[in-house]
């Protein structure tokens, strides 16, 4: 069944159906499903807290452990936290998105998803709704980690424009993380998918210039990181902590986010359409 066919079926047979059922639109359905996702923060904090605490611990731990790395000639900042804070934010937002995949696996296993698919909600809302929820979670993560970062010495080098770039990168990663998590949840329908979601995202992120800039790297990782689109996304998010915001440091990240989001959205829609009873 395609995404459109559900909506068409509902409309074509809507002669005696209540208006609210016959005309369930994408946006209100998405908002409803998104709010359900957000409410789970309060109802199931143990599922959300790791995605909030992990980037904080990671940013603090990396900037402390690798404090001296900024002394390597060519390192673009003298504050290690300025380098590792955006990494922590993007890691946390990616996991906030992937967390939607975990929730979906649980919903599929408990049978809730079957009931959801029987409602007259547009199929696309099953993807856009949780994505809205993930974006709200990502806003919380980015803001919290940024504030903690400020407390331990992070400084913006190009004012609010730099902060805006961090938000763009983090929300982009949360979006692609959500699409990827949903696609794998639909494919695997059990917790095997959860392990693959985490592992692939983790590998993709760390096989980039996550730990040191390309100019400082040596050996095999340099070749991999140079072509890894996550290097562009990290450059986009980091530029406001390393110098001025420039178009040269921006467009590559935007293209990478758009391309990965398009691919993962296509994969998620195809996987959702394959989801059978």
């Amino acid at each position: 069944m395609s995404i459109d066919s559900t909506t068409r079926t509902t409309k074509s047979g809507s002669g005696h159906k209540p208006r609210s059922v016959a005309f369930t639109a994408l946006w209100p359905s998405s908002v409803g499903l998104g709010m359900r996702n957000v409410r789970n923060i309060r109802r199931l904090p143990s599922a959300f807290l790791p995605s909030l605490l992990m980037p904080i611990i990671q940013a603090v731990a990396f900037s402390g452990t690798f404090f001296a790395v900024t002394q390597i000639p060519g390192f673009p900042t003298d504050r290690s936290i300025n380098w590792y804070l955006p990494l922590g934010v993007i890691l946390g937002c990616g996991f906030a998105g992937i967390g939607v995949g975990f929730t979906t696996v649980r919903d599929i296993e408990s049978g809730f998803y079957d009931r959801l698919r029987m409602t007259p909600v547009p199929r696309l809302a099953l993807i856009t709704g949780p994505t809205l929820g993930a974006l709200i979670r990502a806003l919380v993560v980015t803001t919290t980690v940024f504030l903690v970062g400020l407390l331990i010495g992070a400084r913006l080098t190009d004012g609010m424009l730099g902060l805006l770039m961090l938000y763009v990168a983090s929300l982009g990663v949360a979006t692609l993380g959500t699409f990827w998590g949903l696609a794998l949840a639909y494919r695997f329908r059990d917790m095997r998918g959860a392990a693959i979601m985490q592992l692939t995202f983790f590998l993709a992120l760390f096989l980039s210039d996550a730990q040191t800039p390309l100019s400082v790297m040596e050996g095999w990782l340099h070749g991999v990181a140079r072509v890894n689109p996550f290097t562009n996304i990290l450059r986009l998010g980091r530029q406001g902590f390393l110098g001025d915001v420039t178009w040269a440091n921006t467009w590559g990240g935007l293209v990478a986010i758009a391309a990965i989001c398009a691919l993962t959205l296509w994969f998620a829609v195809a996987s959702l359409n394959r989801l059978r009873d």
């Binding site: 690798f66 001296a68 790395v69 002394q71 390597i72 000639p73 590998l203 760390f206 096989l207 730990q211 040191t212 400082v216 790297m217 040596e218 050996g219 095999w220 990782l221 340099h222």
Partner: peptide, 19 residues
């Protein structure tokens, strides 16, 4: 092993730092 492989490439120049 993965982290060590990453570190070997990322921090190859760090071994010359004081300390």
């Amino acid at each position: 092993l993965f982290f060590l492989a990453l570190g070997s490439s990322s921090f190859a120049r760090a071994i010359n730092l004081p300390g």
